[in-house]
Design a protein around this nucleic acid. Structure first.
Length: 593
RNA sequence: GGCGCUGUAGCUCAGCUGGUUAGAGCGCCUGCCUGUCACGCAGGAGGUCGUGGGUUCAAGUCCCAUCAGCGUCGCCA
């Protein structure tokens, strides 16, 4: 009965087909399901590669009746064609089964706290508590495998384009600007601290100074910010930097990278080059700097259509120098009064004073606007400006231009959501370019970089003269389906220009020397013009999966409060460790958990 | 830190205006079953109703506090 070792083939649970019929195989895996028929026992054996049905004869292998879900076993047996009519087309291995000759239980499993089979919704905190079991479930197996293929496609593509993958340090120095740093005490240098990198930004620029020409890294980044739904204290970026590029060069490389990623990992062909929008155009037509281009409903300025209007609210807004922003919803005329009221309420929840609408129904025009405001001429202009036709609805919001565009952009997304236009299987990429170089902090009114202070001004803005807010930057964002995947820029390589930027941002010469002296010094030794970008891996994978949560793309994520409930992190450290580090804990009692 | 939603069996959930012994499906345990694959059939175990206090003759249900989870806003140059 027993086979000698060289006749037994090790196989995975996903590979056996009719071609293997007659072979004696050795399968190892987890007990996925058992179906005990008394005189006959079926066990679905599972590993990462699939599921294979094992058939036991309980008379010859009585211990098979003891098998339970998630036990780990080794089975040898003969691959055979299933009896006609009992094939399972849902299974890749469904044409065959393995008639068990021997069974070894390698390890028993307790009953799992939630089902491994199927994609049953389970409370996320429980999943994270038992992440190693959650990861066995099909959805997470798919997600982690997809993530692997994404990263592999990035490496393969960039390698072929002449990029070198270079690691940069995790223990670096605190930078007072930007997000809060995670901090690591130094034992050898009492009282001093390392910081974990928020990104490898300065190191990749130094790698360009070092002449590596094209660098990338799948880089872990750390930010000690407050919690947010779609945020993790550590996350992963595809970090890229190039020497001597134009903005277009960087964008072209990233378009190729994304095309390779979607082709290799998902089997989806992207159309390149991606759509490019100026920052101003994105704001005007979509009310955001990360537009969702899966659907239309572009915003437009309807102020001209209401010049001289008798509708007091619009007239007052226009007189105050404000704008009327509108957009058309195809098919929107079919909405009921109740629908329009609900949309109005949604707009007001978002901060609008109200929402005006016009339904261009085939049986006549209905509107929230008074008749005096909707003459033939006004209607004609609404149609021509928004592109609305019969059967469509036009919406209008009045107020301060930028805020109203933002609000309208919000409502545009809301309506698209209601209509199911935000299809997770459609991938609409775009670039947003021509960003301003600086913004003003709304509270302190301090000038701050729109991207970061290493971003080069656009041609025409290099002199840094005039209104700083009017300066443009060689800064570009990659956006997918209304989500920002990442930001990049051409960097400053001229130490004089870099110093002037720091100066404009309000740094003293001493601060610049302390924080960025090494960078400016490096630039003094023949720094090549350079530029790059960083894209969020977690987000890319989440969008490819159609999930809202980047936690579903990370094997061992932190929960919403940035804790790992499985290993219990963060946790206290031994008093001896604190003494060695010359640290004393001084936590107010209420802040202790 | 603010606001909102949710905590009932191992899991997913139901439980009305307060009223007998708190239910369902799945899972788990036992038995039966030779072609199932969401196997079937019969039986069974399993609950401090998040925690503490209050109102009431009576609280899973009402009130207060608190903890936890989720979501959201501030924050993320």
């Amino acid at each position: 009965m027993t086979q000698s070792a060289d006749q037994v083939r090790r196989a995975t649970c996903g590979e056996l087909t009719l071609d293997a019929a007659g072979q004696v195989v050795d399968l190892r895996g987890w007990v996925h399901a058992t179906r005990d028929h008394g005189g006959l026992l079926f066990v679905d054996l599972r590993d990462r590669f699939g599921v294979t049905q094992i058939v036991f004869d309980p008379h010859s292998l009585p211990q098979a009746s003891e098998l339970r879900s998630e036990d780990v076993v080794a089975v040898t047996g003969v691959v055979r064609r299933r009896p006609t009519g009992t094939e399972n087309p849902k299974l890749a291995t469904g044409a065959i089964e393995v008639g068990a000759q021997s069974l070894t239980v390698l390890n028993r499993s307790k009953t799992p706290p939630f089902p491994i089979r199927g994609d049953v919704e389970v409370d996320e905190s429980l999943r994270l508590r038992y992440r190693y079991l959650d990861l066995r479930r099909p959805a997470m197996q798919r997600a982690i495998a997809l993530r692997h293929r994404v990263v592999k496609a990035v490496r393969d593509y960039l390698d072929a384009q002449g990029f070198l993958e270079i690691e940069t340090p995790m223990l670096i120095k605190q930078t007072p600007e930007g997000a809060r740093d995670f901090v690591v005490p130094s034992r050898l240098h009492p009282g001093l601290f390392y910081a974990l990198p928020q990104s490898p930004q300065l190191f990749k620029q130094l790698l360009m100074v070092a002449g590596f020409h094209r660098y990338f890294q799948i880089a872990r980044c750390f930010r000690d910010e407050d919690t947010r739904a779609d945020r993790q204290p550590e996350f992963t970026q595809i970090d890229v930097e190039m020497s001597f590029p134009t903005q277009d060069d960087v964008m072209t490389v990233m378009e190729g990278t994304m095309a390779a990623v979607f082709r290799e990992a998902l089997g989806v062909e992207l159309t390149t080059p991606f759509v490019r929008l100026s920052h101003a155009q994105a704001q005007a037509e979509y009310g955001t700097d990360k537009p969702d281009l899966r659907f239309g409903m572009r915003l437009c300025d309807l102020s001209p259509a209401f010049a001289g209007t008798e509708f007091k609210i619009f007239a007052a807004a226009l007189a105050a120098g404000q704008a009327i922003i509108g957009w058309a919803e195809p098919g929107g005329a079919a909405r009921s009064r109740r629908d329009f009221d609900a949309l109005t309420a949604a707009a007001m929840e978002r901060g609008a004073a109200g929402l005006a609408w016009v339904a261009l129904g085939s049986d006549g025009v209905k509107s929230s606007l008074p008749k005096v405001a909707l003459g033939e001429e006004t209607l004609a202009r609404l149609r021509s400006l928004t592109g609305a036709g019969d059967g469509d609805a036009v919406y209008m919001l009045a107020g301060e231009r930028t805020a109203t565009q933002t609000l309208a952009g919000n409502m545009r997304l809301h309506i698209a959501q209601l209509r199911g236009l935000r299809d997770p299987k459609t991938f609409a990429f775009c670039w947003v370019v021509d960003f301003p170089l600086f913004e003003r902090d709304p509270e302190t009114h301090a000038l701050m970089p729109a991207h970061h202070p290493f971003t080069a001004p656009a041609p025409g803005s290099e002199s840094l003269s005039g209104d700083p807010l009017a300066l443009r930057a060689q800064h570009y964002d990659l956006v997918l389906n209304g989500t920002e995947l990442g930001s990049g820029s051409i960097r400053i390589h001229d130490p004089q220009l870099q110093r002037r930027i720091f100066e404009l941002l309000g740094y003293t010469a001493q601060q610049v020397e302390e924080r960025f002296g090494f960078l400016l010094e490096a630039f003094a030794y023949g720094a090549p013009p350079h530029g790059g970008i960083a894209l969020g891996v977690d987000r890319i994978v989440a969008l490819m999966l159609g999930t809202d949560s980047i936690r579903d793309t990370i094997a061992f994520p932190k929960n919403q409060r940035f804790q790992d409930v499985m290993i219990g992190a963060p946790g206290p450290v031994e008093p001896a460790a604190l003494r060695e580090l010359h640290l004393r804990i001084d936590v107010p009692p209420r802040a202790q958990t």
